[in-house]
């Protein structure tokens, strides 16, 4: 009885659980990278250049004889780090602007939402590349830029939530009692808009990981020798004629990770919002 109920619960939230498992595996990979990797990820060995996958090198070796499996394991740290920091930035900005726009309305709202519209006009990848052209490509710039160009959706979402929460009785009564705006915002409104933010944040991590890997792939993101999935793929592209493993495995790693966060996000949405 108990078991079948548990099973049906898992089955119902299959998206959430499969996403959670994938995400946890990659988090573990990032944390325990030194124990999981089989070789030193930056050890250059010209005697073992372009070795095909084998029992010693699970995913083969690259153009400098480095172990691809170990580099991918360490690369998961970069992806995780970039994903979380970038999303942290975009959620903070989006939350702040959305709360202010939705709560105060009027002119402030108009200005903020116009700003959102303007930012949405830019092909975000173009904007990111243009900014990187003026700054220098580094992991910190990449995180900051991905975060700074990704807050618009959050702002719209938060604003819409605030607009609907604002008219409820408990907020009206708080206003009547003369509670200051910032207290109403942080104590009464914020907790009510957080739930949908979780979903957006989870999906955002997926997007940030994809963007980081594309940037690193183009040579404009995380710079070698720091291993990132994107810059391993750059070497893969240059040697695609004879070393398929160099392209294949990092791509699979990106795919599974992004899939994991997407599944988790969609699963969360189903759980948090039963009406859909």
């Amino acid at each position: 009885m108990g078991r079948s109920r548990l099973l049906s619960k898992v089955n119902k939230n299959i998206l959430f659980y499969s996403g959670l498992i994938i995400v946890l595996i990659f988090v573990a990979l990032a944390i325990f990278a030194p124990y999981i990797s089989t070789h030193d990820p930056s050890f250059i060995n010209f005697d073992s250049v372009f070795l095909a996958p084998s029992a010693d090198h699970y995913f083969g070796t690259d153009d400098l004889g480095r172990d691809v499996f170990s580099r991918i394991v360490y690369g998961s740290r970069i992806s995780l780090f970039v994903g979380f920091v970038a999303v942290g930035i975009s959620i903070s900005i989006g939350l702040l602007l959305g709360l202010v726009a939705g709560y105060f309305g009027g002119f402030v709202d108009l200005i903020i939402m116009r700003f959102v519209d303007i930012m949405l006009c830019f092909p975000s990848f173009f904007l990111i590349l243009a900014v990187i052209a003026f700054l220098n490509p580094s992991i910190f710039n990449v995180m900051a830029i991905i975060g700074l160009t990704g807050w618009m959706g959050v702002t719209r979402l938060v604003r819409a939530e605030v607009l609907s929460v604002k008219t409820r009785d408990f907020i009206v009564s708080a206003k009547v009692q003369g509670i200051p705006s910032w207290l109403i915002l942080s104590k009464h409104i914020l907790p009510n808009v957080l739930t949908p933010i979780f979903v957006t944040a989870t999906l955002g991590v997926a997007g940030a990981i994809l963007t980081e890997s594309s940037l690193s792939f183009l040579g404009l993101g995380v710079q070698p020798p720091t291993p990132s999935w994107g810059n391993i793929l750059t070497a893969g592209k240059d040697n695609i004629m004879f070393a398929w493993w160099l392209s294949f495995f990092p791509g699979i790693a990106i795919f599974i990770t992004v899939l994991g966060y997407n599944l988790l996000g969609e699963g969360l949405r189903d759980i948090l919002d039963p009406k859909q």
């Binding site: 997926a206 793929l233 893969g236 294949f248 990092p250 899939l259 997407n262």
Partner: peptide, 15 residues
């Protein structure tokens, strides 16, 4: 749809 959202298109292009 899930696959389409998750697959890095530049990698797919390479493959």
């Amino acid at each position: 749809v899930f696959v389409g959202f998750a697959v890095p298109t530049f990698w797919l292009a390479l493959m």
